[in-house]
Nucleic acid binder design. Structure first.
Length: 431
RNA sequence: UGCUCAGUGGCACAAUGGUACUGCGUCCGACUGUUAAUCGGAAGUGUGUAGGUUCGAUUCCUACCUGAGCAGCCA
């Protein structure tokens, strides 16, 4: 007899199979019981008919508790009365691991309770669907960048200095000296681009900002591609192609999960249609003013502004060439203007905010040295970075995508803490 | 950090200045197609912490703790 996963049930119709599963819920009447099963691949139900299995098996079925681990033997049937379209007519049940007083009941629970039980909550349908889609985004990311000729180059997580200076960092002890958890791999990616042409980093990132919003985590995963011999315009084309590729792969591979989440595929399809609109920062300010926003040229946009801009276009939109004063020191000066840099943020629709930040990097040694000093950063700490401009400096561009922001947006989830297995936020370090 | 809101049995909620409703879960029973199944019965603990007002506080007041939402910061 064959052991199968639930997701493959369609290929085993009318066959007798064995499935290792957990019981998510159970309903029973006097002569028939429905066991709601999950095995990590999908969810479906087992039907236990007393007249067919006999007293003993039927009684066992009725005694099983929520989250009991069982081996189920039975015959797969196609059946429209099952949400999954298929179900298993159970002939035999073996209880492998019992369960008692499982805390997450079939009724609704509060966020705090569910996050306290995150280690168990991961078993349930919504986290299941989101984590499967997260996995697809990770898989598709590797596929995309490998296909495009990138080399994955890992940036260090422990660093000796603050790459962007301004942001708060987690500090830790490194054999008697201060070390910081990485808040970006960007500068290291630039070193990689000068070595291997096109590289991407993909790893955890830490921000000790006391942010308390649905878009922030203190620990999150970031994908940071960096490309030598590449202008910002060329980088934008890669960025939109990458985003469209991610969305398309989720549509192609996660129809089941999107259905569990009740996510509208037609909306997602719009996000695969290129190009994405590009709006200059100048024009964005004008557009916002025309729509009643109280903004002045030179300020960074807040969440309400970002939401308005992205919803205005119903697609992800690039906001290009931000004021120099509000952006990082390494961004390239605009060729004909002194007040803006060659940069772009990609704003996701539906209020999900900035999912990509990127720019062309300045290539000039003296200019970068000045800007590092201007921002009060330690020249000694950045000497290695300046070396990249001393030895064969070339035009190059890069960007960073926040994985959890992308997951939250594509899955249509309310809060970013749902987009990572064990979220770290201002008020949560456990489990 | 600021503003706003909230803290009641394992969970989710209700309530009046007079020691607390209901549902889920649990236990017992019924039911041949359920979809957070339904129906009948039972057990269980007690209003975040510390003060104050009051004959009496879950309710009113003060402080604190914890959490949530929003804002700032950013991905």
């Amino acid at each position: 007899m064959q052991k199968i996963n639930i997701i493959d049930a369609a290929r085993h119709v009318e066959e007798e199979v064995e499935i290792g599963a957990w019981l998510t819920n159970k309903r029973s009447s006097g002569k028939i019981a429905f066991l709601q099963l999950r095995d990590g691949s999908a969810f479906f139900q087992g039907v236990v008919v007393k007249a067919k299995v006999g007293e003993e098996v039927f009684e066992l079925a009725k005694e099983l508790k929520q989250e009991a681990a069982i081996k189920v033997v039975g015959i797969i049937h196609e059946d429209k009365r099952s949400h999954f379209g298929y179900e298993i007519e159970v002939t035999k049940i073996i209880e492998i691991g019992s369960s008692d007083e499982y805390p997450i009941t079939p009724k609704e629970h509060g966020t705090d309770f569910l996050m306290d039980h995150r280690h168990l909550y991961l078993r349930h349908q919504k986290p299941f669907a989101i984590m499967k889609i997260r996995n697809e985004l990770i898989r598709a990311t590797y596929e995309f960048f490998n296909k495009e000729g990138f080399t994955k180059l890992d940036a260090p997580i422990l660093t000796g200095s603050a790459p962007e200076g301004t942001t708060e960092l987690f500090e830790t002890d490194y054999f008697g000296q201060s070390a910081y958890l990485s808040q970006t791999g960007q500068l290291y990616a630039e070193a990689g681009a000068m070595a291997y042409g096109k590289v991407f980093t993909f790893g955890p990132t830490f921000r000790a900002e006391k942010s308390k919003t649905r878009r922030h985590l203190t620990e999150f995963w970031m994908i940071e591609p960096e490309m030598a011999w590449t202008t910002q315009e060329e980088s934008l084309v890669i960025q939109e192609k990458y985003i469209a590729f991610l969305v398309q792969n989720v549509i192609d591979h996660n129809a089941y999960e999107l259905k569990l989440l009740d996510r509208d595929i037609d909306i997602l399809r719009k996000y695969t249609q290129l190009p994405f609109p590009r709006l200059s920062y100048d024009d964005a300010v004008t557009l916002l003013k025309d729509n009643g926003f109280d903004v002045e040229w030179g300020v960074d946009f807040g969440s309400p502004e970002e939401t308005f801009l992205a919803n205005h276009f119903e697609k992800p939109v690039f906001i290009i060439n931000f004021p120099k004063a509000i952006k990082a020191f390494y961004m390239k000066r605009h060729p004909s203007r002194d007040d803006v840099v060659v940069s772009a943020d990609l704003l996701a629709p539906e209020g999900y905010g900035e999912i990509i930040g990127g720019s062309e990097r300045d290539t000039d040694y003296e200019y970068l040295k000045e800007r590092i000093e201007e921002q009060g950063l330690s020249l000694a700490e950045y000497q290695w970075y300046l070396d990249l401009r001393q030895y064969g400096s070339v035009p190059h561009s890069g960007f960073g995508l926040g994985l959890e922001r992308a997951v939250t947006w594509i899955t249509g989830t309310e809060h970013i803490r749902e987009a990572i297995p064990f979220p770290r936020t201002l008020n949560r370090l456990r489990p």
